[in-house]
């Protein structure tokens, strides 16, 4: 395996552990945490591609900064929704929020 492929393998493993957490766990806060793990995996892949590329080094790192900002926004909104939901129902399990069901 080339060094680039090692970093990509790590990113893939981390991404799918995160997606397993999103699919398997039911606590809203834990789902937000697992989404953060998935975003970290994406960042590893972006930086690895950027710094192993013969041209355009640094370009991927710029996108990592955008991912950072959007991850922070996502965490703030997701956790605010979790707190609002908890205030409404005193529960945090996604199975309890079925108001939109017809």
């Amino acid at each position: 395996m080339t060094p680039l492929q090692q970093y990509l393998a790590l990113a893939i493993a981390l991404f799918f552990i995160g997606s397993w957490g999103v699919l398997a766990r039911r606590n809203i806060i834990l789902i937000v945490m697992c989404v953060e793990l998935m975003l970290n995996a994406i960042n590893i892949a972006l930086v690895a591609f950027s710094n192993y590329s013969p041209t355009g080094a640094g370009r991927g790192e710029v996108f990592v900064f955008f991912v950072f900002a959007l991850a922070a926004a996502e965490a703030a909104i997701g956790l605010a929704i979790a707190i609002a939901m908890y205030r409404l129902k005193e529960r945090l399990s996604i199975g309890d929020f079925d108001e939109m069901k017809g």
Binding site: T2, P3, I12, F16, N51, Y52, A57
Partner: peptide
């Protein structure tokens, strides 16, 4: 899904340098 992506990653060809570069 993870194994499928690993296979794609392992079989693809990359136009990559030997060592990671250090963009300033």
């Amino acid at each position: 899904a993870g194994i499928a992506l690993m296979v794609v990653m392992a079989t693809a060809t990359y136009n990559a340098t030997e060592d990671a570069q250090n963009p300033s």
